[in-house]
Design a protein around this nucleic acid. Structure first.
Lengths: 98, 98
DNA sequence: CGCGCATATGCGTATAGGCGCATATGCGGT
DNA sequence: ACCGCATATGCGCCTATACGCATATGCGCG
């Protein structure tokens, strides 16, 4: 679980979108994320697996569902990366000289 | 120049290392970065090209060298991502429950 | 104006990563 | 025990991306 893994995990549109949703602190099942992000089941499941192995989220079995939520034990430095990424995506209409 | 591009640019070890160097605000030629990061010339040049097209750095011709430095016009939200990434890499010895 | 240093880039190759499909697994209800 | 819903995963395919090599380009100098 290091910075590089976190950055790699975030560097994919569907995962970045999923993190935004999950970052609210609540629990979200795969089926909900699939629907919100218009992704197929296997696609969504794999992406969540990547986020999980990067340490960004944790999962929990709840009957037939698997609930994902942000990992509360993620080191501060890594939380900062995700926070910044989420904030940047949300403040989308940005622009500046390049 | 958006969050996704920035994250993708940072999600590569050599580029992440290069950003750490360049993030000091100073100017650095490709030859210096090559040496510091033990990368070949074409590899280093291409990576800097990626960082440049992500808007993270700007370049300047100086005689036979090309000096790269961090883009002073990078939007705040994106600077925050890079700052967080650099900080996380520097505080490397981190650990936590997963 | 020819040479050498620094950098960029075209090209072919190798590898990583994302996807869909089919199937396996976990779990509750009947 | 069986069935169906939710999720995970093996597999093959396809695209993106990183790399090295060779070569092109920019620039100062003699």
């Amino acid at each position: 679980m290091d910075a590089f893994l976190v950055l790699s995990a975030l560097a994919e549109p569907t995962r970045l979108a999923a993190i935004q949703i999950v970052w609210d602190g609540g629990e979200h099942c795969v089926c909900e994320l699939m629907e919100s992000l218009d992704a197929t089941q296997s696609r969504m499941s794999r992406h969540m697996g990547v986020l999980k192995s990067a340490g960004l989220v944790v999962d929990r079995r709840d009957a037939q569902w698997v609930r994902y939520r942000r990992n509360p034990d993620l080191p501060r430095e890594l939380v900062a990366i995700v926070d910044a990424a989420v904030a940047a995506v949300e403040s989308k209409p940005q622009r500046a000289a390049a």
